[in-house]
């Protein structure tokens, strides 16, 4: 019996090993250079003068008020956007109505409008130079350069997050389970709370997570409307800019490190959701 020497089989649905290694190396290098390096820098710069300096910077009254303001803004905008997202997904996926496609486009609008333009538009609507703004000022209602303006600007930029996540999930789930609940005698609200909400809870959490990360980190839109009054209208990102421009690098990076930790936590929770509940999320099968 003669032995025919086999040549190494050429892979059919993948690349040869050296190519694979090259591509993996390129990808990992790219990620390391463009993603990990800046992230590491944040923490390195924050700790440049040791823990104590960093913690002291965070404990200053201005920093604390910035942290508090950021938390309050997120606590208001995120629930509002969650309600909006649920309402939008409910109307869009459970009913057939005129102008649906146009409505979806409108919901997506904030994704493609510059945050600075959003802030500008808000100032033109309610700033002191507009007639509506003059009326508000006459009635002692301050929106621009005050807390309500920051909330509105943050809502603009975070507006599509929850709806975008929920709509595909609810399209996939269809209407049959809600209809079944109704035929069994459940009221509309009951069927919503006992059937719809449990079915979308993970997707909702996912959307809220992304919405929250953006709400706490928004810079451009808030910078325009905040007026940057220290201790009053400075959110964490605005405070970072002010400190950085004053060459208070450690203080700026310490605040930045807090936000970076929040970002890492967001990514961790998001990944957990994706691994455990991939079948119930839209993001993991978007195409």
């Amino acid at each position: 019996m003669s032995v025919v020497p086999l040549s190494r089989p050429v892979p059919v649905t993948t690349e040869p090993r050296p190519t694979r290694h090259l591509l993996i190396g390129l990808a990992v290098g790219f990620v390391a250079l463009f993603l990990f390096a800046p992230l590491v820098t944040v923490f390195a710069e924050a700790l440049r003068q040791g823990w104590v300096a960093s913690v002291q910077a965070l404990a200053s009254p201005d920093a604390r008020s910035a942290i508090r303001l950021t938390l309050i803004v997120a606590a208001i905008t995120v629930p509002l956007n969650a309600v909006f997202g649920i309402a939008a997904a409910w109307a869009i996926t459970k009913f057939d109505f005129r102008g649906k496609a146009f409505l979806i486009t409108l919901i997506d609008l904030p994704f493609s409008v510059s945050p600075v333009v959003a802030g500008l538009a808000l100032i033109l609507l309610v700033g002191a130079n507009s007639s509506f703004g003059a009326w508000l000022a006459a009635n002692d209602l301050k929106i621009v350069f005050a807390f309500p303006g920051i909330v509105l600007a943050t809502m603009f930029v975070t507006f599509p997050f929850v709806a975008r996540e929920l709509i595909p999930v609810m399209v996939e789930q269809g209407r049959a389970e809600e209809e079944a609940a109704l035929t069994l005698g459940a009221s509309g609200w009951r069927s919503f709370f006992t059937v719809t909400l449990p079915n979308i809870r993970w997707a909702l959490l996912y959307g809220v997570l992304l919405c929250n990360a953006r709400a706490m980190g928004e810079f451009g839109a808030v910078a325009v409307v905040s007026g940057k009054i220290r201790g009053e209208t400075t959110t964490m990102p605005i405070m970072i800019e002010m400190l950085y421009n004053e060459y208070l690098s450690v203080a700026a990076f310490s605040l930045a490190a807090v936000l970076a930790l929040l970002a890492l936590l967001t990514l961790l929770l998001k990944s957990l959701l994706e691994w455990r509940h991939a079948d119930l999320l839209a993001a993991t099968r978007r195409h």
Partner: peptide, 27 residues
């Protein structure tokens, strides 16, 4: 639909995935 009290069996059953069989029947 609630007032009609018609027992309806859906084509793909529309069982509530997040509830047990008992909870489905008791719904």
């Amino acid at each position: 639909v609630q007032e009609r009290r018609a027992g309806f069996v859906f084509q793909h059953y529309a069982l509530f995935k997040h509830m047990t069989v008992f909870e489905n029947v008791a719904y």
